[in-house]
Design a protein around this nucleic acid. Structure first.
Lengths: 204, 204
DNA sequence: TGGGTTCTTGCACCCGATCCAAAAACCCGG
DNA sequence: CCGGGTTTTTGGATCGGGTGCAAGAACCCA
């Protein structure tokens, strides 16, 4: 996705181009729309070379996920780092997801998603979504894996991601008067995962 | 996705290029892998011009979905055409999905999916999946919309698609000794949708 | 002052995708 | 059997995202 910036304290320092690139891109996307804006235009406005863009972003579509990527990564690491506290992993899954959702800054509402039709981001947004969502699904799967069959673990991963996506989508679509993110995610996630409790005796 | 072929009985007849293109592509993907195979190579082996490819397929990645696209389309139309029989729409949703799954030919197991790592189809497969899955999610959403709130309808769409994907994935991964497709889809779909029944009094 | 390291840049290239105009192949009415 | 109307095929041109590479620039430290 996005190149990590190890902030090396040796060698040539980066020209702090990253933020400038993001800003230039946001401006141009608003002016002309996403598809009509070429990477060259972005780098031109930012005052750097075209290739420099790829030092900071792996793809043009990475710009669409600037607001969400940190929280997605946070959730993935949270799932990986969670020790064995009390409660079934399925219960703790919901808790963890909602906790990360609660920590997501209310200000960071992805313009690429809220203004899809205005900026024409849909196509690239769709194409670049699975890379994020599948990473999430896999993290969820391995998180619940110890207490579920492989098949059910995978299913929970897919289903949870679907629910999260629906929740986040509703949160974005709600407009400026929107409630807190956890509210939407919880409302979608709860019923989606309800059917997986006590599945031991049954379909498994 | 794939261009419709109205089979016009006037004008220049199509060379039966479509099947030839599919075959040539399948061969080349096996020989060299998907990313290493260019559209030009495919059309060359099929004996047609490069542009002809785009008369039959909207994108290279359409080749990856040859086996699944018909069933996806069938499900979408089935959801759209379903009159008002008995039972809640949520119940009929499962029935419809499983019916379409049951009609999917057992022979049509997408090689692009079963041989992901062998043929290197993952990246393009991911990028082209949402176009299909979102169409499905929307169809499901509008199907259950009359009996659910907008938010819950959307959530059901996302969650059901997640479950279906998990089921189909397991079906493909099961190898040649796989059971019938409906079995896997049912096992994933049932628990995923269970939590949405009798939601009227509660989270709604 | 001279490495070693990292960032930047230019250049070349590949490939998927789109657009357009011309030619080819067919059907049918006259 | 000849000449529109229609559709497919094709070639040519163009665009833009993405990759690879090698040279140079900017910095730190010894």
């Amino acid at each position: 996705m996005t190149e990590a910036s190890p902030a090396a304290r040796v060698g040539r320092p980066r020209r702090s181009s990253r933020q400038m690139l993001e800003d230039a891109a946001a401006e141009l996307f608003l002016e002309q729309g996403y598809p009509a804006t070429s990477i060259e235009q972005i780098t031109q406005r930012a005052g750097v070379s075209r290739n420099t863009f790829f030092n900071y972003f792996g793809a043009k579509s990475d710009l669409l996920w600037i607001d969400l990527d940190p929280s997605i990564a946070a959730l993935v690491t949270a799932l990986g780092a969670s020790g064995s506290e009390e409660g079934t992993r399925l219960e703790r899954l919901t808790t963890l997801i909602l906790a990360v959702a609660a920590e997501h800054p209310a200000s960071r509402v992805p313009w690429a998603l809220s203004q899809v039709e205005l900026m024409g981001t849909r196509a690239d947004l769709e194409a670049s979504a699975p890379a994020r969502l599948l990473a999430l699904a896999e993290a969820i799967q391995t998180f619940v894996a110890p207490e579920e069959s492989e098949f059910i673990a995978r299913t929970i991963g897919s289903v949870a991601v679907g629910a999260i996506a629906a929740g986040v989508g509703a949160w974005i679509a709600a407009g400026v008067r929107r409630d807190r993110l956890e509210t939407y995610v919880a409302a979608a996630l709860r019923p989606a995962l309800a059917g997986f409790t006590n599945l031991a005796k049954g379909t498994r």
